[in-house]
Design a protein around this nucleic acid. Structure first.
Lengths: 216, 216
DNA sequence: AATTTATGGTCAGCCACACGACCATAAATT
DNA sequence: AATTTATGGTCGTGTGGCTGACCATAAATT
């Protein structure tokens, strides 16, 4: 979502910018809902912690996204999910009331937010669909593609150069799988030429080849 | 979501009511997006058809819900999913422009729709979470609970009397499983006392017992 | 009433993939 | 430089649940 200069300056004036190092918790489940967050830069994981301590992610959010907004609109008092910085993240925190005021005063902004929510809803539904349809390698391919499209330069149709430093554990928790499985799959993708994977970093992905792993 | 009399009468005036028999397609993927639908009564399945002809559902919608709205707000020209009546369904069809006009003219209604979208987003995220966390019996338990809560009388904490006539095939497609598996699980739930299941109808569910099948 | 179709029950076979175990290497900390 | 910690590779093992096959019964159609 792209904000106008005007909207951006309103947020800047009425919010405060905070930088989080990798691994820092931005908010966590159960906390009181008083503010909304705008990601200026970086990658954020939205997740929930299970009874036995594992993390289950329901999505990643990128620069330009608002997070923590669903609770505000449905007037929830407590966070349902946690958010964690997956790298250096710069965030603008805006108080709930300021944000609601902005919504009320600017119908165009309000429209934009409605658009944001519906886009995100469709994304969530598509993710659900992909989950049902695809075995693990398909889900991983989908995840890598979407991460690359956000982070990388849209090059030729073929290879997108990227720079993805995510641990296998993180990938596993996003697609609901086990670390060991991710390990084998990444190696399989590498041998196949679907990704260029050196050390602990994915430095390129081959869009076409990756897509061939996806069902439907 | 509950509409005011005023909102309801606007919809009635600017829309046309249509009744669908069981199995009827309300709209289908690929169709042009010109209208929005309000469910007056009945149960609607939102799904997508896969290349090999199977159906994968991403959710059920009940009376009082709008369907087909995400495409409108994100200005999609084509439907991404299909909708099918799972029983007798009564629907109010409202043209896109009338609906957008209503949104623009009534800020309170606009707020309500934003609330609807965020609630639905949270539901979708929760479903995703449940999918990752729960094995099939857990997902089935969750589905039965949510259907019963919408359809049934909220009785004691224990047994809710309901009247669910859904085929095992339908249940399978909603939770992404196979018909045979549903068959065994329903029988297991019956023996366990989690549900009262006679012939082809579930006539009661035991909330507590069903919940014990759910992870977390 | 007779036939066809839709739905449900059950069983055997198979395989994807989670899990545990263990070691290798890289990164971080001292 | 030495030690500790985080991350990645790989291999068995076990099993949940999908697939296919087949029959029983209920519902719909003639």
């Amino acid at each position: 979502m792209v904000l106008t200069d005007d909207e951006m300056s309103f947020l800047t004036e009425n919010g405060s910018e905070i930088k989080y190092p990798k691994g820092q918790i931005i908010f966590s489940e159960g906390q009181k809902v008083n503010e909304i967050y705008f990601i200026k830069s970086g990658l954020v994981k939205i997740y929930r912690t299970t009874a036995d301590g594992r993390q289950v992610s329901v999505g990643l959010r990128y620069a330009g996204d608002f997070i923590g907004c669903a609770e505000i609109f449905s007037n929830y008092t407590e966070r349902e999910y946690s958010a964690e910085a997956m790298g250096k993240v710069s965030i603008l925190i805006v108080w709930k009331d300021s944000f609601k005021k902005m919504l009320a005063e600017r119908p165009q902004f309000s429209e934009k937010i409605l658009e944001l929510m519906s886009t995100r809803l469709r994304e969530a539904q598509n993710t659900l669909y992909d989950f049902i349809m695809n075995p693990i390698q398909g889900r991983l391919a989908i995840l890598l593609l979407s991460m690359a499209q956000r982070a990388g330069v849209e090059g030729e149709d073929d290879i997108i150069p990227v720079r993805l430093r995510v641990t296998q554990e993180e990938l596993a928790c996003v697609i609901g799988s086990a670390r060991q499985t991710i390990s084998s799959l990444l190696n399989m993708f590498r041998e196949d030429g679907s990704i260029i994977y050196k050390g602990r970093e994915i430095i390129g992905i081959n869009t076409k080849k990756l897509k061939s792993w996806i069902q439907e």
